[in-house]
């Protein structure tokens, strides 16, 4: 699960993929995860951080994580 190298993210949660020209918006938590991914955090580290900071059951987040990765993949933002 690695973000493509040149993906541009902004504080407002904007994502721009210079390779395709697509722009995206993200909600706060999605932007936060992207930030961790960009700075090279591993899947385990990121999940741990989120579970520490947010009021969510591990099971629930596990499901949402998979769905989020699917969205990133659909959006062509992951380096597979």
């Amino acid at each position: 699960m690695k973000l493509k190298a040149n993906i541009a993210t902004s504080e407002n949660g904007f994502i721009f993929n210079p390779a395709t020209g697509d722009s995206f918006t993200s909600n706060a938590i999605a932007a936060e995860i992207l930030g961790y991914m960009k700075s090279g955090g591993s899947e385990e580290e990121i999940k741990k951080k989120i579970l520490e900071n947010y009021d969510v059951e591990p099971n629930q987040f596990e499901r949402d994580w998979d769905d989020y990765m699917l969205q990133l993949k659909e959006a062509n933002l992951l380096d597979l």
Binding site: S10, N12, G13, F14, F16, S23, T25
Partner: peptide, 10 residues
Amino acid sequence: DVEEFQKLSA
């Protein structure tokens, strides 16, 4: 610039 477009979108 793409920022203007993003700003309007968001």
